[in-house]
Every structure is written in C-alpha cells, then in structure tokens.
Design a protein around this nucleic acid. Sequence first.
RNA 1: GGACGGGUACCGAAGCGGUCAACCGGGCUGGACUGUAAAUCCAGUGUCUUUCGACUUCGGAGGUUCGAAUCCUCCCCCGUCCA
Length: 427
Amino acid sequence: MKGNIYDEFEWRGLLYDATPDLKELLGKESVTCYIGFDPTAASLHVGSLLPIMGLARMQQFGHTPIALVGGGTGLIGDPSGKTAERQLLTKEKVAENIEGIRAQLAHFLDFGRTPNPARIENNHDWLGSLQLIDFLRDTGKHFTVNYMLSKESVKRRIESEDGISYTEFTYMMLQAYDFLELNRRADCLLQMGGSDQWGNILAGTDLIRRVNGKKAHGLVFPLITNAAGTKFGKTEAGNVWLDPELTSPYKFYQFWLNTDDRDVVHYLKSFTWLDREAITGLEESVRDNPGAREAQRTLAREVTAMLHGQTELDKAEAAAGVLFGGSLENLAVRDLKDIFEDVPSTVMSRNELSGEGVGLLDLCTRTGLAASNGEARRLIRQGGLFINNERMEDENGRVTAEAGIGGELLVLRKGKKSYHLVQIGQD
RNA sequence: GGACGGGUACCGAAGCGGUCAACCGGGCUGGACUGUAAAUCCAGUGUCUUUCGACUUCGGAGGUUCGAAUCCUCCCCCGUCCA
C-alpha cells in the first residue's frame, strides 16, 4: 500500500462525505469496494469519469475495486437526482448497454493485477432470480417506510406533482441489497459514488449491519461543477461521451482544453494521476501566465491519452494545430481529410460547382451551416463565414470547383469553431 | 362539480382592436477584444426577397370587424381555491 487513500481523496478534493472510521479501515487493510454504473446508455460520459477514477485510485493504493453494472437495477431506474419518473428500458437495451460500458471500464481498471484484480459484476445475476416473497421477508422487513420516506431522493419526488411510482420507490432497497450481496460474496466493505448516492449507500450499510452484523462503509464524491454554472460534461453539441464513436478524441480533447481557469486545478486533481507537486506547478502557471493555458493543455493531454491512447491524442493535437493555427495551405488533401475526420461533410457534384458555381447562401443552407437563407445572409454580413479560411464578404457571391483545395475540398467555417467539409465528387 | 387565474416565438415575460413580426430579460448565432477563455461591448435572432415589400405566426376551431395576439362563442390544456 502506498499510504492512505483517504488522505489522497481528501487533498484532491474528492471527499464529500464518508462514514466514520473509514479512514482508519483504509489505513490498515486492503478493502474491497464497489461503485455502481447505470446502464442507461451504451456509453458512459465524462460525468462517470470521476467514479471510475475513484475505483482506479483505490486499486492503485492496493484495494480491490468492483465495478457493478446495474443490469437489474437498470430495469427499474434510480429516482435520485431525477424530478420525473423514468422511461423504462427494455431488457435487450440494458444488456446491450452493459457490453458497451464494460469495454470502457476496461480502460481504467486492471483485471490482471495481483493481488488485487479489478472485477466487473452485474447485479442482474442476483436480482434477476430474486423471489418477491423472499425479498420482502428477508430484506423488506429491515426497511421502515418512514426511513425510506425520509431520504432526500424520495422526499423530493413525493412533494412533486407527478409523485413517484412504487417501482422507483423500491430502487433504494435494491441498491442496498446489492451492497449486501457483494458483502456476502466478496466481503465488500465499501461503496462509493456521487454525492447524490449518499442516501442509497447508507441504506446499504444499514442493511448489512442488520443482516450480516458487519460494519460497512460509504464514501461519496462531490458533484462536479463548473464556474460557468452549466452542467459539467455538456457542450453545445450535447453530452461528452467516452465512446470515440459518439465523441471523437478530437472533441474530447477540446472539451478539456476549453476548461475554465477557475475549474482547471480542480479538474486536474479529479481526473488525472498527476501528483501534488505537478499540480501545484500548474496552479502557479494558471495564476502567473494564464494565457499559455498550460494547465488546460496538460489536463486535456492526460485525460485524452488515458482514455484514447497516445496515437489518438497526437492526432487530436495535430488537428487542433491546423484548425486554430490558421493556414490550410501546404496541406495535402489527404491530411486535411484526416484532420477533418469528425467534421460533418457534404458531397457535391463537380457539375454543380462548374460554370457559375453555387451561391454562398445556397451552400450554407445545403450544408446545414445555416437554417435559412436569411440566416446565411446574416452570417455573411457579420463576417462569420469562411471558405478555406478566407472570409467571405459578398452575400451574393458564388463558389466554383476551382476554389477547392486540390480541386476537391472546400473547407467551410462558421465563426471560430464550426467547420463543415464539402467534398467535390468526380462526376 | 363550483369560483377565479392563465395558455404569446427556444425559455421567462409584456402587449389587451389598428402605429405588432409583436417591448424586455435569458438563451442562442456572428463580430470586436483575448488565451480556441472569462468578463465586457456591438450586431442579429419567423419565412421569402432584401430596397421597398409579400407571406405565415400569439392553445385549437369558428365568429364580430374595413382591420384582432387583443372583442364574442365553443372546445382543449395548466395553476390556485372551494366541494
């Protein structure tokens, strides 16, 4: 063991709440711990990165992590943090999602490590065959409705108009049961999670105490916030996913690079392996020379490399260099296509672009850069349209194939960041 | 079932017979500044044409009127109070 993980979590600011005496326990023995992941989608998003890293850190410090995917509970839906009843997922969908999530967890956890290999469990294995009568007698008996009603996640929903279904009301018991089951099977003594899970986790430790007579623990991480007050992990384009098919490594890298100064140190502590010394150095850099954005760059590099690997990171940085560096000249068509890999593109026939060519307004609506001619016109008037990095001034202008790079590519840009590729077909 | 109040563009919210494509705020999109930032400032934000102008919008359907988001009738939905 490399010291107490509890202290590690503490200085990183990852300790929102924990049960008493946990620190002592973690200091003296190797503990098996788990975190549950909801299979609501086929990919996890950056919001899940914190708990995943939490497990990985535990493993680094010699503890044994279990990632629990909620194949059973996912069929029910967790009311925590939700203001409305959830749409139920089909069993097939849940099974499919679990496969996706499993693959992603593998990037962070070491399943071959000795003596503390990571494991993935699926709570469907025990919840799926659970008998209602047995469950009510053995588990339900330990919960008073009063207790459950007093939990924040339930309380909020009781007060809301739509209420809460019996199904979701039961969720807490199932999660508690998971903990109990893992305690039995793997001697798991600690459940971790986001701070919204605190109530559910305590329900689990209570249940374990009553049924197994053992003392189990909980630890929760703070909610990740950002200075702008928006939801962490969201961009204009939507969620930032871990799956490269859903969020390209380039966009992933950009997401981190665009971190606010006020958040960057916090994120470095939360999402990277960098040690205290390295982070202190970067903290100074943010203060003394914020324009260099060294902290952001490091953050983006670390996290991207960890998830997608060095090769993808290199590509993402190369693309950023071109996209924000300026000139598109001197670049081969093939390189451009590579750099703009995840930029939306449209194919247009050479025919359309010969002779008079195509009007700029048309081009904007065709490619979806503008929703209407009026919008396109506005865009050009305000100087926001670029073709091959050259500002278009004339709203009635036209483009022909001659303007294409190598005669086959038009790089359209709206504003600073929004690119669209037009590939000129051969016919 | 009864009594009020309300449904306006992405959201909040004015307007309450013509001068309303509809004040204002937020959001969003451009631009300037800059660090691919924050803050700030400027511009824009129904469609078509952009100069004038035309057309379609204010829960839905009808109606009154030269003319309605604004008045009337019916219907639908939401909130509050009384049963």
